[in-house]
Design a binder for these strands. Structure first.
Lengths: 213, 213
DNA sequence: TTGCAAATGTGATAAATCCTCACATTTGCA
DNA sequence: TGCAAATGTGAGGATTTATCACATTTGCAA
């Protein structure tokens, strides 16, 4: 027997490029594919995105699409990965130099605002993360992202409260971060006025937990 | 022209039984369909649930399935609706007689525990709610549910803090509740030990917000 | 009881979609 | 210049959802 690969569908299968674009030409095409996918998701949501439509709009054939993305989810995953990388850089920069409670308040509040605005402005992000609960690979990406972001917070907290139990700080930061995502997602799914109130309420709640009274 | 109905697919289409089972016979069959769907979701997740499999396991034909459920999502929706009705009754009962801060602490902590245990024990619930972000009808059901539950909390808070701004109480309760759902979902997706810590941390955080120090 | 309309049941099959594969073309380089 | 590797193509296989024309059962009025 020829050792057929027969990859199990397995539900958990990590979505990675089937083939890395090594030539300039193909790198550009992959960009076009992602741009097309992004536009379609913004218009109708990732569920309604059709592979054929992505290919057509990117000006490539279906076959080419599948040359670089093993399946549909992989495209969404690739977009999600970009956003996490981008936002992590942003978060890291914002929290890097926080040295006191006042600085944390400032930086945290700004970060939440940026995140909220981003979700309001970019339907793609909203939709990409909506698959987060259903798709195992996406959920894992988001968890890893959330943990990484929480780490930045933990670093700050350790400076502010050197005597605190590290495990507790870790738990607090992780929870606060994850709730921030939940709060923002909630906020964008209600009307603007209520959304604003919810985000402000979250900030108060989170900061009370992070810096005490 | 005969005024054809041509219901728009519309993305928002509310999933309601295409036909209400009016005879005893069909009511039992609908129960079997839901039970079969529930079992399949527990085994493989609602995404992997196949209509043909549901029909087969329920001992009915595909056609019968579609006689009572307009589409696949409607089945998941029907299951979700049951859970919300059940849990609302439970929550209402738990909060109905809370008259002071101590009582609230007690009742709230218990509710969160119950919710957490329920999610740990019932893969169906976990999976049904996982579609909550992607499926418009489900998201709306969950939002409505969350608001209804928040109302119970608001009622309690108004008793405890009669002078507080009602809008603020509303916002707080809604946020706290929604975050509880997020916290529990997070908790069940990490290992048990960390999950327990997260739930406890959430309780502290929420109660601090609800009853003050 | 009988007859009949409404309710219910059936499954082949239309329609939509994902993804594969055998083959064509282009590129980088010895 | 020639060739292997990279890239490109799209018809078609496979899967799955959902429909529809027709069959059967039920409740009920005469």
């Amino acid at each position: 027997m020829d050792e057929k690969v027969t990859a199990k569908p397995d539900q958990a299968a990590i979505a990675s490029p089937r083939r890395s674009p090594s030539q300039q030409r193909s790198r550009e095409r992959v960009e076009r594919m992602l741009a097309a996918a992004s536009a379609l998701i913004a218009e109708q949501g990732s569920d309604a995105m059709r592979m054929g439509e992505v290919a057509e709009r990117a000006g490539v054939s279906i076959g080419s699409l599948y040359q670089f993305f093993p399946d549909k989810r992989a495209i969404v995953w690739a977009l999600a990965e970009r956003y996490t990388a981008e936002s992590q850089a942003c978060i890291s920069a914002a929290l890097k130099d926080v040295r006191d409670a006042e600085g944390l308040k400032q930086a945290f509040s700004e970060l939440v605002d940026i995140y909220y605005q981003l979700f309001l402005a970019e339907p793609v992000i909203r939709d990409v993360w909506s698959g987060t609960q259903a798709d195992k690979a996406l959920r894992e990406l988001e968890l890893a992202d959330s943990r990484a972001n929480a780490e930045f917070l933990v670093a700050v907290l350790k400076r502010l409260r050197p005597n605190a139990d590290p495990v507790e700080l870790e738990t607090t930061a992780f929870l606060v971060w994850q709730m921030g995502e939940a709060a923002v997602r909630l906020a964008i799914s209600v009307d603007r006025e209520e959304g604003d109130r919810l985000v402000e309420a979250y900030k108060r709640m989170a900061l009370r937990e992070l810096v005490g009274e």
